[in-house]
């Protein structure tokens, strides 16, 4: 495993205090908790592992590919095709738009301007890849966020012990690194050939969450 430290841009983007609006999303955890599918640390660990190996791996591959200077429009289209749930697409673009707002001030560049001119609300992994540059770091940021967002939502929604949840995340660290290392191989993969791991239950949870979000008050946007 590469022991090189992550650059500070990657750390800022992965930080829960980064003002990108990521805190408003539970990644399906709120619906899973409402249905009693996640109730405690073991069921949370199971949820997070499944999420990491599917949605996390998908985001990681696209973040790595977006570092390579390839066609960002093609990446946007291929990520759409790999995200059948409209609620999941909206959540990804909401978070990508949040990163874009911060990035215009923090990391201005011609490539960022070109991306946002074509797509003002880019998918989250695509803009993270554009900002981070190193494929493994970019992949690690989105793989990490794929589990830390739902984990902190679980603390708030289920009243789980924050130290216990932190230990669950710590045990997933090796998996996060493995997903990032695998994704980093895709820095130069053609967009249409990128992996497409699906997560059917997450798609169903996201659509149900969206329906409930419109009918009643939910704490998280997704």
């Amino acid at each position: 495993m590469d022991a090189a430290p992550m650059d500070a841009t990657a750390l800022l983007l992965a930080d829960s205090r980064f003002p990108g609006g990521g805190h408003a999303h539970s990644g399906g955890l709120e619906e899973a908790a409402a249905r009693g599918l996640v109730t405690d640390e073991p069921s949370l660990a199971s949820f997070l592992l499944g999420r990491l190996r599917t949605a996390g791996a998908l985001a990681a591959a696209f973040a790595a590919a977006a570092t390579g200077g390839g066609d960002l429009g093609a990446l946007d289209a291929e990520f759409d095709a790999r995200t059948p749930s409209p609620a999941q697409r909206a959540a990804s673009r909401a978070q990508g738009g949040g990163v874009a707002r911060a990035a215009r001030r923090a990391w201005p560049s011609a490539r960022l301007d070109a991306l946002l001119a074509a797509q003002p609300r880019p998918h989250h992994p695509v803009i993270v890849g554009l900002l981070v540059r190193d494929p493994r770091d970019a992949a690690r940021v989105v793989a990490y966020l794929a589990v830390t967002g739902p984990a902190s939502a679980a603390v708030r929604l289920l009243g789980l012990d924050p130290l216990g949840v932190n230990a669950v995340l710590a045990r997933l660290a090796g998996e996060v690194d493995a997903v990032a290392a695998d994704a980093a191989r895709h820095a130069r993969t053609a967009p249409e050939d990128l992996p497409a791991p699906g997560s059917p239950a997450l798609d169903l949870l996201a659509e149900a969450h969206d329906r409930h979000h419109r009918e009643e008050v939910r704490l998280f946007a997704s």
Binding site: G28, A32, L37, V38, S43, S46, F47, L48, L49, G50, R51, R53, T54, A55, A77, E78, D80, A81, R82, P84, E192, P195, A196, P197, G198, S199, P200, A201, L202, L205
Partner: peptide, 23 residues
């Protein structure tokens, strides 16, 4: 262009049982 691309993997018990995957 692409409309849909989705790969589903089954057979890893820890993923099959995850509430995020096949629940």
């Amino acid at each position: 262009g692409p409309l849909l691309r989705q790969s589903v993997s089954v057979g890893a018990p820890e993923v099959d049982s995850s509430p995020a995957c096949l629940a």
